[in-house]
């Protein structure tokens, strides 16, 4: 239990998707103009990450890894389908996003309207595929750990985009040199935020 909490906090703050790995940067910078849309996208990413990471974990461990097909019989014990992981992961993500879109539309129409176009676009958000690839690289021990990792990474991403959106709303009327306006200053602010987040480094939980 303590271990899982540790994993969660580590992925929200220490190994934050945005500030430590730059994943999902494109939508992070493009959608952070207002707090409202930023919150919508943040929640959508959190949602999708929490679902796709454990699903891909199961696929990786029971289909793709070397020896993963052991449950099919002895003759499959040495099959290694690892090179197919990109293809399968992205297919799972695209399918999951589509599925989640349909479920949300049917049962939570209010949330569906709030998220709008961002839901389908998540399929190509690098944070999602990045989550699955990091999960594969770090070799988590169980589905529970993978789920907590997905949850933590998603929470970190959502927090990061809300913070930047709030700052950008505040700086709208600031006097920024013309060539830096908009994108330029957003980059620099993200950089400064990332330096602040580095303060979490070295914390032992």
């Amino acid at each position: 239990m303590e271990n899982l909490f540790d994993l969660f906090v580590r992925n929200v703050f220490l190994e934050n998707m945005i500030f430590a790995y730059f994943l999902g940067m494109c939508s992070y910078l493009a959608v952070s103009k207002t707090v409202k849309t930023a919150t919508g996208l943040g929640i959508a990413v959190l949602f999708v990450l929490t679902i796709t990471v454990p699903v891909n974990y199961l696929i990786d461990n029971y289909l793709l890894k070397k020896g993963a097909l052991h449950w099919l019989g002895e003759s499959f014990a040495n099959v290694d389908l690892g090179y197919l992981s990109f293809l399968l992961f992205i297919a799972v993500i695209a399918a999951m996003v589509q599925l989640i879109e349909m479920v949300v539309e049917k049962f939570f129409p209010a949330l569906y309207n709030a998220l709008g176009i961002f839901l389908p676009l998540i399929a190509v958000n690098c944070a999602i595929l990045g989550g699955s690839l990091f999960m594969q690289e770090r070799e988590y021990g169980s589905v529970v750990e993978a789920t907590v990792y997905g949850l933590g990474a998603g929470t970190g991403w959502a927090l990061a985009i809300m913070v930047l959106a709030a700052i950008r709303e505040k700086t709208r009327y600031s006097q920024i040199p013309a060539p830096l306006k908009g994108l330029g200053i957003a980059f620099i602010m993200t950089g400064l935020l990332a330096i602040a987040f580095m303060g979490f480094m070295g914390i032992k939980l």
Binding site: P179, A186, G191, M198
Partner: peptide, 24 residues
Amino acid sequence: PPMALITVGVIIWIQRSINRKLIE
């Protein structure tokens, strides 16, 4: 990592100072 972001910010700054029609 953070300096990469700031460096891109500076590149954007320089590029837009030269190519002024890109200014937002």
